[in-house]
Amino acid sequence: MKFGFGLVLTLVALIGASGVLFARDYSAPGVKVANPWTRATPAGATTAVAYLKITNTGSTPLRLVGGSTPVAQRVEIHSMSMEGGVMRMRPVPGLDIAPGATVELKAGGLHLMLIGLNRQLTQQEQVPLTLIFAGGRQLAIELHVEGMGGGMGSHGEP
């Protein structure tokens, strides 16, 4: 029991530490992006997913409509659902974020889909990506590339 508690503490510390080491926050007037990350891709893979947390720090509605990255042809917003063991993904035209609200794109849910990868993504590298909001506002961020395995639940708060 004691060992179990110690393990939990160690894990919490590790997750915290990894957040400090890797996660970067990006902000521009009215918007903040926390902990953007993606996974290393298998050889020849043509798609990748990216996750992040967006907060509308302004006083007007914010709408994410897409993105762009030098490593892929295009970036789309997709939703993912898992019902009865069946995985389904669908494009989402835009994500509305009310003033003060935070939307989390995370494993097993909403995510950015990088389509038409022109190279393999390797663990520990940083991949540039520009988020595009309605009205033409943009925010340049970098995705931290994590390992290929793991997903839902394996990433704590930064």
């Binding site: 996974r39 891709t41 298998p42 020849g44 893979a45 043509t46 798609t47 990748a48 997913v49 993912m80 995985m87 993904m89 494993a107 097993g108 995510h111 889909m113 990088l114 390992g147 290929m148 395995g149 793991g150 997903g151």
Partner: peptide, 17 residues
């Protein structure tokens, strides 16, 4: 399928581990 961005590579990485 190989165009699958999340479930397939994650599962294959899991099977490998």
């Amino acid at each position: 399928f190989t165009y699958c961005p999340e479930v397939c590579p994650t599962t294959l990485a899991d099977i490998t581990s």
